[in-house]
Amino acid sequence: MNLLRSALVPLLAVVLAIATGAIIIELSGLNALEAYKALYDGALADRKGIGRTLEKATPLVMGGLAVAFAFKAGLFNIGGQGQLVIGALFAGAVGYGVTGLPWIIHMPLALLVGAIGGALWGMIAGALKATRGAHEVITTIMLNFVALNITDWLTSKVWREPGIIVRTPAIEPSAEIPRWSELPTGFALSVAAAFACWYLLERTTFGFEIRSVGLNPEAARYAGISVSRIVILTMGISGMLAALGGAIETQGVVGRYEPGFNAGLGFNGITIALLGRTHPLGVIPAALLIGAMEAGGSMMQFKADVDPEITEIIEALMLLFVATPILVRWVLRRRDASEISVGAHWGDA
């Protein structure tokens, strides 16, 4: 019953967003039904489509987890994009640069190096907040731009494949995350990460400390919790999650690092985290939904001539309905105790 109630708002939000999207498509003179049919065909109709959906959903689960995890400590990590490219590039570098290792060591090693890179990158924002009081919304966004420049430089100057195209060489087969008959196994990794996050937050002392800091930093400090330590570690874990998404993309889908891949994931992570009610497990269905829309986008353009950018509008609408009180207050006529709040921490040092 409880589960049903907490799923009601997101479900209603999705339906409303899709309906509004249909109106926009019709208003621009195209056929909405045809468009959504093509979207479905591209994303879910056959094994190939489902594989594509899972592929797209994997970094989205990780990006959503990164945002949701930081939320628990009252932190707003908009740096998913930067952390992701760092993870993707480092995993790619280890994937091609280290040779002669068996799969059982090489594949996890590349993931690990990507994860550590992202964790350190995330910690920069955490440390700046803990020691200097610099707000993480600003620093993570700025670090996104810095990360894009750094990875561009590393790709074009240090780890570049000889040739015209700016990209790293293909990774060794021993670093690849395999497919299981069209289905990417990387998705299973992201689901495992979601469960690990849930366990860490809900069943361990460390998770309790994180949630305490998120609920009331002053009270947490009074209870003897080092708020600085929690802020730095939480941003580190958050960065690591986003980076793992990038590493899985490199090792499981692309097979190398190419600049400019997966742009906009930082914002997608926010949408997905909020759509999943910032619950680590709620992130999974949210990511599958957005992943399906991305997977079917090109089919929609091909068959119904609708720009795939319509999915971005639908995402914004979902966020509007699910994360703001519009739906809860106006449609359901009640106050929702689980409303999400991050703004109250804006001025905290």
């Binding site: 914002f267 926010i270 720009d307 971005e312 509008i313 639908i314 914004a316 994360a323 009180p325």
Partner: peptide, 23 residues
């Protein structure tokens, strides 16, 4: 509606990206 202000602002950002790209 007394919603969270950061999230409200984020909605504006994402909506702007989507609408301007689509149209």
């Amino acid at each position: 509606l007394q919603g969270d202000q950061i999230i409200a602002g984020t909605v504006l950002n994402i909506a702007a990206i989507g609408l301007t790209s689509f149209f």
